[in-house]
Computed example of a mutant assay.
Amino acid sequence: MKQFISVLIILWSLLLYSFVVQSQSQDSISVTKTEINLDTLSTSASDVVKTLEEKLNPPDVSEIVSFTKIFWALVFIAIGYFIIRFLTRTIEIWSEKSPDRRVKGKAIVPVVKIICWMVIGYLIVRGIFRPPVESLIAFGASIGVAVGFAAQDILKNIFGGFVILIDRPFKIGDKIEVGSTYGEVLDMSLRSTRIHTADDSLVTVPNGELMNQSISNSNSGETNCQVVAEIYLPITIDTHKVRKIATEVAKVSKYIYLVKPIAVIFVNDIKHDKLCYKMRLKAYVMDIRFEFAFKSELTENVIKELLESNILSSENSI
């Protein structure tokens, strides 16, 4: 319902703009004809002004809005709501059958919602209420001022939603990081974006805030993504043996995506006031939903292998 209201506001603005342009064009033609009549019939200027004022005088709102029209508008909204729910649910079920489908299929869900709500809004405005140009201009002008002051944040989020859909810094199914929030994009609407985090939380971020923050995308529409497991090791450890063990552990994982390379990097760091190595094991997972399981598996199995090989012991561990 929030999406319908948002789309209806935008649709109303677009219709208002088109009708204003049309009205201005018609007024120009009318004035031209009136000027011709002035030359031919010697009509006074006061009569022309009075005629224009009467023409632009909007009719009563009661002539446009009635109980029957409101009833059918609600019927259209209800039918449209269930149709959109059915379409989006069908796309989601089809997308979940494989990782490739999930990334590509869910990306079109926001577009389907917007198009459907715009069609429903157009049918209601132009098909049921059918307001004349004068009423649309008068009503739109008064409502536009109120909406502009009362719903600035909503309009900012709606504008941000359109910018995201056009610029496409991420899509549904991508793993993104916004501020301190990192997770999978589950849903995108005109007002907000929902992110599923590693601790099974659903974070809703307004689109207006997304426009003003840097966004890190882990997979950019692909089903695979890079996973980095970090392990602190003593400075005296044999890095060559550790690199070999870490690489073998990553290769035998059931989540590994072997098409892309495996990298093991050592950097100096300070941990508990001691100089040590921070090993960063970088590998790719075949499905982004296996990211956290893969990271946990790498960390556990590397430490286990190092202990069994006597390269790492409880005495020299960090």
Rank of each mutant, 00 (worst) to 15 (best):
G140P: 14
D273T: 01
I262F: 05
K244F: 07
L52K: 13
E291H: 07
P234H: 01
F266H: 01
G183C: 04
I77R: 06
T51V: 10
L155I: 12
L307A: 10
Y17N: 08
L11P: 12
R102C: 02
V103F: 11
S44L: 14
I195R: 00
I256A: 12
G148W: 07
K254D: 15
R191E: 10
N217S: 04
T247G: 02
R168C: 00
D27H: 10
G160V: 07
V145F: 12
E184M: 10
G221T: 02
V205E: 09
F159S: 12
V125E: 13
N316I: 07
G148P: 03
E308D: 09
G80D: 12
E305H: 03
Q226H: 01
S317P: 01
H272M: 04
V252A: 13
V147I: 15
I176N: 02
W94N: 02
Y257H: 14
K171F: 04
V111E: 11
F294I: 05
S189P: 00
D47K: 11
V264M: 03
I70H: 05
A150S: 13
L312Y: 03
L210F: 00
N57W: 05
I154G: 07
F19W: 06
T68Y: 10
F82Q: 08
D27N: 14
E184D: 06
K251G: 09
K97T: 14
G208S: 06
V185A: 03
P110D: 05
R289Q: 11
D273H: 02
S218F: 14
V285I: 11
V103M: 14
L123M: 13
V147W: 08
A151R: 09
R130F: 07
E35Q: 08
Q22K: 12
N219D: 01
V75E: 05
G140H: 13
F82M: 15
I114C: 06
N37D: 09
S214L: 04
E248S: 11
P99I: 08
T299W: 01
P169C: 03
N219S: 04
D27Q: 11
E134R: 09
K97G: 04
F129M: 00
V302M: 06
A138Y: 14
R126I: 09
V103L: 09
T239D: 07
V285L: 04
F71R: 10
S28C: 11
S44T: 15
V119D: 06
